[in-house]
Amino acid sequence: MTGSTLDSSQAELIISAEEMGHQAHPDYRITGVLVFLVAEAMIFLGLFTAYLTFRAVAPVWPPEGTPERELLLPGINTAILIASSFVIHNADTAIKKNDVKGMRLWFGLTAAMGAVFLVGQLFEYFHLEFGLTTNLYASTFYVLTGFHGLHVTFGLLLILAVLWRSLKPDHYNSKHHFGIEAAEIYWHFVDVVWIVLFLLLYIL
């Protein structure tokens, strides 16, 4: 202010920063993660639309001569990934009760399930009878699943980072656990993308 006194109507308008929740450096990281995931979703949406267009334009899909795909392994993989989304949610419940050990248990289990998914994916890659450049279907298959696999890998690294940090005493507690929430949100996102991908590439 510039030295002059305020009358009462003005004084009313001056609100303490704290009481309005307008802290100097507020924490909006969860909002930031969600907004960033909008961009992530758009890149997948773009690739899915490209895939659907290739498919709609092609006279036969998958192109003639594409070997049949096994559904069993990807099916099991899908079940594991979907289940892991429920598993990771328990970690959130645990940390809200200040149960760091419980959180570690559920995060560790999710990490293991994620690793099984990635190994299963690689196993499928090595046993498929088509390569990256065999035909357009093969190319889209590898690029889409590979791009998703990269995201799973990144999610896995996030989970491992949270586990590493949780070793520090009182790093996470019932009030401060942004890292746990962020990793969980990301994991759910990766899961949802996989469901769409699975439907597009294997079922439809």
Binding site: V35, V38, A39, E40, M42, I43, L45, G46, L47, A50, V143, F147
Partner: peptide
């Protein structure tokens, strides 16, 4: 946020 990722997809 809505459009730039799609360009990234095309460039990939």
């Amino acid at each position: 946020l809505l459009s730039t990722p799609v360009l990234a997809g095309a460039l990939i």
